[in-house]
Structure formats: C-alpha cells, structure tokens
Amino acid sequence: MASAGTCWSCGEKLPAVEPFCPECGVIQPPHAQENPFEIYGMEPDFDVDLEALEPLFREGQQRFHPDRFATHSATERRYSLEHVTRLNEAIRTLRDPLLRAEALLTLSGRSVGSESGGAAPQDPMFLMESMELREQLEEVDISADDAQDRLDHLGRDVQQRISAEMETISTAWKTERESPSDTNLESIAGAIDRMRYHRRFLEEVDRMEEALFEEMG
C-alpha cells in the first residue's frame, strides 16, 4: 500500500485529488475521506442542482468503468470498482433529500436530537396530525369511485409537507454556514424525522394505489 500522496505504482508524488497518476497514468485509489458533495466537486449544501449532477455522474461512470480496466492488473481493477461504487453511493445520497440532509448533519460533526430514531420525546401536535392523516387514508374506500381522487389529494397534501420540510432544512443549513449553532442542526434533525413519517405515509398511498389498480384490473 502506497503512502497517501504518492502513486502506488510508480512512486510519483501526486497532487491532492488526482484519480490518475500524471506521471505513469495509472489509476489511484479513491480518497476515502471525501464526502458525497466533494466527490462531485461541490460545496456541502442542501440545495443541489440535480440536473448538473447527471453529466458528472455519467462522465465518472465512463472514466472509471471496470470494463476499461479489464486487461489491467488486479489492483487497478479493484480501484476502478472502488471509484464506481463510491460515485454510485455518493449520487444516491445527493439525489435523495433525506439522505442529503443526513449527510450534512454527519458533516457538521456534531450529534443532535433524535435523528437516530427510537422513541425520543416528540411534538405531540405533529404526531396528532400524522395520526389524523393516516386515519383519513385508512378511510379511503378503494372500491369507491372517488378513491383515486382522494388518494391523489392526500398524496399531494403530504408531498407539500415534505417540500416545506425541505425548505426548513435548506434555510437551517444556510444559517448554519453563517453562524454555526446546535439550534440549526436541531431544526434539520427535526425536519428529517418529520420527513420520515411523511415518506412512510406516501409508501402507504402507493400501496393503496396498487391495490386500487388491481381492483380495476
């Protein structure tokens, strides 16, 4: 194993982030400590331009594709696979608002609130609302004519709640960058928790839509 900063194959000193050795052109192992944002060359932020990300993703996939290293040494094949895997995992995090927000919390290096789950004390009003939404969903009779409309309506309602939570996270992270404080991270952690309930709700809507589809089929 080469020491960090030198090419594992020819020993040449490497610039900070260089996936290929400029001297011998051999693929280097990915930098393990890079976070998902850095992997795609961006500042950690909740607001991510997903469209701008896609070409970078495809480019990286091509550049490191294991097929291109099929005739290379076992070490090079392994490094290419590590790069591809790392790009895949990073984009999965960046594409998903929930994972993205969690990544920002991890990056802050401070642990707050109940984002780890469990039965931490929570806002009873929020839980009450969640319960009411679940009750409304349960009351939808999938054999009724208006079933699809009602499912759409409830789905949109909860989707809007998710958007509002995303807004909260975005604002809290901006504030955090200007003046770091646990309050910001707690707002993010709280929004993550609420998003989890909303996602669970949307899964249930999907499940009922499938049942509805079967019913019609």
């Binding site: 789950g117 469990g118 929570q122 839980l127 319960m131 989890r196 309930y197 996602r199 709700f201």
Partner: peptide, 11 residues
C-alpha cells in the same frame, strides 16, 4: 399519549 418512531414512521 401520542408517540412515534421516526426511524420507521410508526405512530
């Protein structure tokens, strides 16, 4: 009493 498990979205 209202309680929930954020990890799985149970209420």
């Amino acid at each position: 009493g209202m309680v929930g498990a954020p990890a799985c979205g149970d209420v």
